[in-house]
């Protein structure tokens, strides 16, 4: 604020004298005219102060944006961070589907091998009962090896099937980690819009809210995603057993 605009004598001496004169003369019209003039002077000085404050904020903001790499962050680095996470999401999605492709392809040959063993068992038993030892004389290890193979092959094929099923189930990590990533990406998008608005303000442009992410409020109805230790682990169940107990209390 300048010294001149601060000098009340300069600003108010003339309207004050007019006001005093009008009061002296009991001139109502002149009195209110002088009062209005004083109010105008006062209003002008308030607006001037607001102008000063606005200019100061803008220049502080411009300095802040220039000095803190705010432009780079808003225009490049934060959007890049979002794209990087999107890429991670795509990579894990592709990897999970690729794993499941391979598992599904392994399933059919494993199933066929298991069926062939099952078909072979009665044939081998019949052969064993009707002179296998005489027929395979000279191949002493073969009988024992075939017995062992047929005894265990069925159970081992079952283990392979069970493990393949577990590999499919394990791909659920992609859904769980993906939900957490999407939450972080949403946050980054909001941050990006806030930074862009700040940079626009520093350039004397209106912040604009067309692009601001006004996302759904976080709450139970829309879901919180998987529990993240030390982030949202308050009032959550410990696992399926807790849920079953809770539902059983509710007669479900």
């Amino acid at each position: 604020m300048s010294a001149a605009s601060n000098d009340i004598r300069l600003q108010y001496a003339v309207p004050m004298a007019a006001l005093a004169g009008a009061l002296e003369r009991n001139d109502e019209a002149a009195f209110y005219g002088a009062l209005d003039e004083m109010a105008r002077v006062r209003e002008g000085s308030v607006l001037g102060e607001i102008d000063d404050v606005t200019r100061n904020i803008r220049s502080a903001l411009a300095r802040f944006c220039a000095e803190t790499r705010m432009n780079d962050l808003a225009e490049k680095e934060v959007p890049d961070a979002r794209l990087r996470l999107e890429h991670v999401l795509r990579l894990t999605d592709d990897a999970a589907h690729h794993t499941m492709d391979l598992v599904e392809r392994a399933h059919a040959p494993a199933e066929r091998a298991s069926q062939r063993v099952a078909q072979l068992v009665p044939l081998w038993r019949a052969f064993r009962a009707t002179g296998a030892e005489a027929a395979l004389r000279g191949h002493p290890g073969l009988l024992q090896s075939m017995d062992d193979f047929l005894e265990h092959a069925g159970a081992e094929a079952g283990q392979v099937r069970d493990n393949l099923k577990e590999v499919i189930l394990a791909q659920g990590y992609q859904d769980l980690s993906g939900q957490i990533l999407r939450g972080v990406m949403k946050l980054i998008a909001e941050l990006e819009q806030a930074l862009v608005s700040l940079v626009r303000l520093s350039h004397g442009q209106p912040p604009g809210d067309g692009g601001v992410v006004r996302d759904r409020p976080a709450g139970d109805a829309h879901g919180h995603g998987p529990v993240v230790p030390r982030v949202n682990d308050a009032d959550v169940v410990g696992g399926q057993a807790d849920i079953d107990a809770l539902l059983s209390d509710l007669n479900l």
Partner: peptide
């Protein structure tokens, strides 16, 4: 679902 809050299950 991964939603694990007691209130949600209720």
């Amino acid at each position: 679902t991964a939603e694990a809050k007691r209130e949600q299950i209720i």
